[in-house]
């Protein structure tokens, strides 16, 4: 870690942190768990940064149910999510699986949910699961606050739609719903690894067992989380059976995947279908 800084600051309140980001705009960088920051520093991608503002002590470490949804503080770590039984409920299960599937336990202990969204890396698991769950993010700056769908924060690889003086304070998930379940599945080379591709799904059925809503996200298929609308188009209002699954499998992915070092677009296309099928079946099983 050879990155040189003028200072590493650990503010105690959100206001203090926002003021620092405002005053040092351009020269200050938020650090949460620091796991992606470290990678950025190793790759010399922190040019111009002179101050780190550590947001660990801002009181953003919480999970609470409110009227409008489930609020997860930005500095909640992956392991705090895994160890909180709320997330094993079908509505949130995708997030639980994504956090639990992270390739290294040591990272799970420090990496934060906020940091994972703000990194804007399309193959990370947690953000893809969040997008599948229709998560929103609250962003605060001295100029005010905004609430965005998580997918709208991704502009491209390492290019988040977040201003340098903004802090993502929390993630908001919809309240638990009935006849709803979610799942996250990733294909990896080794047991614990980054995703070659991944699928996040959330399904809501109506009283009669027909699809009321279905949301599907593919990870590492595009430079940003890819919402596969085809699935909803085909399945909307229908009863999901083998035939329907086959039909969907024929139609997805509706986009040409990007190549990676360990997998070509050809391979990704083939396995995405399988992954989708398996993830969907797991999801449906949880509803019944």
């Amino acid at each position: 870690m050879h990155y040189e800084l003028k200072d590493y600051i650990k503010p105690k309140t959100l206001e203090e942190a926002l003021k620092l980001l405002h005053d040092y705009k351009g020269a200050a960088k938020i650090i949460a768990g620091g796991t992606v920051i470290h990678e950025l520093s190793e790759r010399n991608l922190l040019e111009g940064v002179e101050y780190f503002v550590d947001i660990e002590n801002l009181g953003l470490n919480y999970v609470r149910i409110e009227k409008d949804g489930l609020h997860i503080g930005a500095t909640t770590t992956f392991n705090q999510i895994v160890n909180n039984s709320l997330f094993t409920k079908p509505s949130y299960y995708a997030l639980y699986l994504a956090a639990k599937g992270v390739s290294s336990y040591q990272v799970r202990n420090v990496a934060t949910i906020g940091g994972s969204v703000c990194s804007s890396i399309s193959f990370l698991d947690v953000p893809n699961a969040l997008v599948a769950l229709n998560a929103k993010a609250k962003l605060v700056s001295l100029n005010g606050e905004r609430i965005e769908n998580v997918e709208n924060l991704f502009l491209g690889m390492l290019n988040p739609n977040i201003s340098e003086d903004e802090i993502l304070t929390e993630i908001i998930l919809p309240l638990e719903e009935t006849k709803t379940a979610s799942y996250y599945m990733k294909l990896t080379e080794r047991a614990f690894d980054y995703a070659i591709v991944s699928v996040g799904i959330k399904v809501k059925l109506n009283e009669n067992g027909y699809v009321e809503n279905i949301r599907t996200v593919f990870g590492n298929v595009q430079p940003t989380p890819y919402i596969e609308n085809k699935v909803y188009e085909i399945a909307k209002g229908k009863y999901i059976n083998e035939d329907l699954i086959k039909k969907i499998m024929e139609e997805i992915p509706s986009v040409e995947p990007i190549d990676s070092i360990n997998a070509s677009a050809w391979y990704k296309k083939k396995v995405l279908k399988v992954l989708f099928r398996d993830a969907l079946k797991e999801t449906l099983e949880m509803i019944s």
Binding site: E189, R190, A191, F192, Y194, I261, N262
Partner: peptide
Amino acid sequence: ALNPNFADYKLIQHAD
């Protein structure tokens, strides 16, 4: 070199 690191050059892990 495309993968001179432990994220992309895969060594077997205990779980495998």
